[in-house]
């Protein structure tokens, strides 16, 4: 790839199963070293796109490119839907098979990988007897064997308890920060994704509707401040006279100030004018709000 800062690029990707088109003209770019969050409703096409990225399914149209200097086995690690592990083998045996799969000789890094995911004490327990969280961690361990440059994780925290979610989140952050792995991750749990990803791709109806960085999302909507006051209309008029962008239409009965402004002096003057302000709070745009604004639906804030 010409631009060495790009790790992965999908151009014009479409996928059809018979007459049913599930992905249409997907264009997506993942930069090296970032954590890319793929966000979408159920059935939007996230998993299908990840299957195409990993080679599990061929695209009907379009191309995908990886920014590897030289391809080797295992430069892409993945966990798509369910962990790909032999249930009749132990964690160690599964990793040994994965090493062989990649043409590597199991060495001390195997124990290090088990420790990294917290499965170094499982002994002779077969993977079929593992809890869901343990299987997910083993799946991630399998994905990171051979130190892949890119990791593709589809819903890795599904079904996990809160501690399990924290563990996986920390694991992914460490992989990105300590091993400089580029990560593409999808999840329904937007709050968790917002703590992880540095860039996002929003997919709906088989199309990428928007790509944005975490910074862009945070600053996507202008800042708003909400004031509760008995004489909301009069207060709004007063604030407008002081040069602030204030109105009562957005939140009837309350005053909304648009933009990031320092209004401390204005509020002191308003109090002197007899206005009693009962409450002040910021209205912030989070990932959920951004997602809903793009694809529709309701927030649960």
């Amino acid at each position: 790839m010409e631009d060495s800062s790009i790790m992965f690029k999908a151009t014009g990707i479409s996928k059809s199963y018979g007459k049913k088109k599930v992905l249409s003209d997907i264009n997506l770019t993942v930069k090296r070293g970032e954590i890319y969050g793929l966000v979408g409703k159920n059935g939007a096409g996230k998993t299908t796109l990840m299957r195409i990225m990993t080679g599990l399914q061929p695209a009907t149209e379009g191309t995908i490119e990886y920014g590897f200097e030289k391809r080797r086995y295992g430069d892409v690690g993945s966990l798509v839907e369910t962990p790909s592990i032999y249930l009749n083998k132990t964690a160690r045996e599964n990793l040994e098979f994965q090493y062989m799969n990649l043409g590597l000789k199991p060495d001390s890094s195997l124990d290090e990988t088990l420790r990294f995911v917290g499965l170094d004490n499982t002994g002779k327990k077969k993977a079929g007897k593992f809890s869901l969280g343990m299987r997910q961690r083993l799946g991630i361990a399998m994905a990171i064997v051979g130190n892949p440059e890119m990791l593709i994780l589809d819903e890795p925290i599904n079904g996990l308890d809160p501690q399990g979610i924290i563990n996986i989140r920390d694991l992914i952050l460490r992989l990105n920060q300590q091993k400089n792995m580029t990560v593409v991750i999808s999840s329904h749990i937007l709050s968790e994704l917002s703590k992880l990803a540095t860039s996002f791709g929003f997919i709906d109806g088989g199309r990428i509707v928007k790509e944005a960085t975490a910074y862009e999302i945070e600053h996507a909507n202008e800042k708003q401040i909400l004031l509760e006051c008995d004489r909301a209309f009069d207060l709004a008029a007063f604030l407008v006279s002081k040069g602030l962008n204030a109105e009562t239409d957005t939140n009837p009965g309350k005053v909304t100030i648009h933009g990031e402004v320092d209004f401390t002096d204005v509020l002191i003057e308003a109090k002197a004018q007899g206005f009693v302000i009962k409450d002040i709070h910021n209205i912030e745009t989070d990932l959920e709000d951004y997602f809903v604004s793009l694809v529709g639906g309701e927030t649960h804030a």
């Binding site: 990993t54 080679g55 599990l56 391809r71 080797r72 086995y73 295992g74 430069d75 892409v76 690690g77 993945s78 798509v80 369910t82 962990p83 790909s84 592990i85 032999y86 249930l87 009749n88 098979f97 994965q98 799969n101 990649l102 399998m142 593709i152």
Partner: peptide
């Protein structure tokens, strides 16, 4: 069949084989 049922065949494909 176990390669399919346990999903290990996905590892082979993703690995680049």
């Amino acid at each position: 069949g176990r390669d399919y049922s346990d999903g290990f065949i996905r590892n082979k494909i993703t690995a680049g084989h």
